[in-house]
Design a protein around this nucleic acid. Sequence first.
DNA 1: CTTGAACCTCTAGCGACTAGAGAGATTACA
DNA 2: TGTAATCTCTCTAGTCGCTAGAGGTTCAAG
Lengths: 134, 134
Amino acid sequence: MFSIGQLSRRTGVKVPTIRYYEGLGLIVPEGRTEGNQRRYDKAGLDRLAFIRHARALGLPLEAIRELIMLDPTSHADTHRIATTHLADVRKRIARLRQLEAELARIVQSCDGGPGHECDILAALGDHGKCDGAH
Amino acid sequence: MFSIGQLSRRTGVKVPTIRYYEGLGLIVPEGRTEGNQRRYDKAGLDRLAFIRHARALGLPLEAIRELIMLDPTSHADTHRIATTHLADVRKRIARLRQLEAELARIVQSCDGGPGHECDILAALGDHGKCDGAH
DNA sequence: CTTGAACCTCTAGCGACTAGAGAGATTACA
DNA sequence: TGTAATCTCTCTAGTCGCTAGAGGTTCAAG
């Protein structure tokens, strides 16, 4: 049996966050003490480790809830959620790479030295020079 | 003179968002009509276009506020803000690429077909197989 | 039995908006 | 000039994934 603090220390998830997850129905303590404090068993520990790892991978809590709720033998659903998230991550990477290219271009337009024409502000205000992706 | 709706249509920034920006002090209408409606001039339009483009590049509103407030001839500050943001974007890309690699590995561990051992749930719960970056 | 740490619930805040209520202003057209 | 349609006003609350704090209770060690 673990207290919420022990669970927190073992998983690296902060105490208020665990309670927050409980509010969302993602994890429920096995029981309570007479004094109303939460007590967890090994299953609770595993569940929280699962949530934490999935979060570290960037899955939104809603997707994690789906993973928890669905039939663990249903490969199709599991696969769908993971694949969707992978596609999402790839989209975000693509977008960030565009931003990176444009920002790099803007920063290079000025060497930061004094007495030099600085184009950064103008470049930020002027959409015309961009690829038009945004 | 533009109404808030005209400004919205010309810049692609939604009306409530313009008012939200005003609450943060990023843009102020040139004046108001007798009936208390906002009216903007060309400077307001340019200012909003600037904000929109900077946002599209991912700059947080706080950074945009800095850019607006600072002396436009001060290259150093401008350069610093843009460079900081570029570094931030690069960090986020690096992190997402790690996630992508791991997710791809996890998804590949299961072909989604029936009657097949699916490792996705196990892989999500088990941090041990990861590079340990998260 | 006392102390101090850990725990409880509840509320509010972050960033960057978005949605909606309910009321008032403006504009286009007849 | 009237009226109807559209626009705008302020205000509040919701989104996501937490985090921080107030004010009070319980637990475990010495």
